[in-house]
């Protein structure tokens, strides 16, 4: 449990947000040409990092907007928050 600085609303309790998992997984451009292995990789396989991870969050009980966050999963420390479409910061 921690405080998240929503890029639209400011600091709010984590319980207002929902986590959308690993960020920057690009949706396949040609879905019809994908093999089963490539589908599995896109849909299911995750890095599940212990350490600094880039992830998507949604302010579900607030502005309901999606944004990205860089968080250390070993201690829940947040390094950066940035809007969708912005370039990920170098951590």
């Amino acid at each position: 449990m921690f405080i998240i600085n929503c890029p639209y609303c400011g600091e709010r309790d984590q319980s207002e947000f929902s986590c959308g998992g690993e960020a920057h997984i690009v949706r396949p451009k040609q879905p019809t040409e994908l093999s089963d292995d490539e589908w599995a990789e896109y849909l299911f396989m995750r890095k599940n990092i212990k350490g600094v991870q880039f992830e998507r969050w949604n302010h579900a009980h607030g502005c309901r907007k999606w944004f990205n966050m860089v968080r250390d999963t070993s201690n829940d420390k947040i390094h950066a928050v940035y809007k969708m479409g912005e370039k990920p910061p170098v951590i």
Binding site: G21, A40, E41, F44, M45, R46, K47, N48, I49, K50, T73
Partner: peptide, 18 residues
């Protein structure tokens, strides 16, 4: 919970979230 950490050492990704 640390299965993915070990898998990453072998260059393998698993369908897991911890």
């Amino acid at each position: 919970g640390h299965s993915s950490v070990i898998a990453n050492m072998a260059g393998l990704k698993l369908p897991l979230e911890s």
